[in-house]
Amino acid sequence: MLSLNNVTKKYGKFTALQDIDLEFNSGVYALLAPNGAGKTTLIKMLTTLIFPTNGEILWNGDEIVKLDACYRNIIGYLPQDFGYYKNHSPRDFLLYLSAVKCIDRIPAKRKTDELLELVGLLDVKNKKMKKFSGGMIQRVGIAQAMLNDPKILILDEPTAGLDPKERVRFRNLISSLSKDRIVILSTHIVSDIETIANRVIMFKDHKLFANDDPAALCASLNGKIYETDIAIPNGCLALTERQENGKTITRFASETDCGDAAQSVSPNLEDVFLYVYRDEAV
């Protein structure tokens, strides 16, 4: 189990995260928050790239920094800006990272081919990566994160810049990789996590705001979300708009019962996100 106890991270006088208590067991955990809310800070602490100012991060009761290489052996990480060697093939690149991850050469070759097949890149395993699309590069990124068969897979904004088809493919891949391991996924794209996350973690004002399963988060807005094709009542929060039969349907949140003025609808995770972060520029 991975746990954070009272973790605070400060950069000088700026507090990026404050008093965070979290526990991670097997499953997909989505960190959902707007840009600048502290998702990447948390991920960097979990990957030992930075250290908490206060508090502790424990893996099975031991501090991750003290575990040193033993902890790095069990994590797989895909950074937000995933760099790659343009003039090398994905196979060469994965073999190189296998060596850096201290995997013996023969198992590394076998694992590399297995992973390239899993991410659908076996056909191009010897092609230079400079010709790859963004989606293909992200798949190489996932493959490298899985090289050491990590118990903790940490993905920072893995779907940023991908087209919808690639995003769906990526979601399915993450879902298939989440058995018997902790997958921590940071994103501000709600559709990425709606179907695959077991728990959604939200930060607000640099503090933990919510840590619940998606259904429970949506249920927190039951009776508050409405749709209408006329002007929304005063004091309500407009969420989204869509065109239907030539009419503009507005989805909105209301703290009070709207009666016949609008139709009550089931809340979704996007509603929760827009409602929670209504005061922030998203």
């Binding site: 990957t47 030992t48 790239l49 895909l78 950074p79 760099g83 790659y84 060697y85 850096v100 050491n148």
Partner: peptide, 14 residues
Amino acid sequence: ACGLYELKQTCRYT
């Protein structure tokens, strides 16, 4: 510059 510095810092050999 190659964008892999952070990733490599999280590997067995940093």
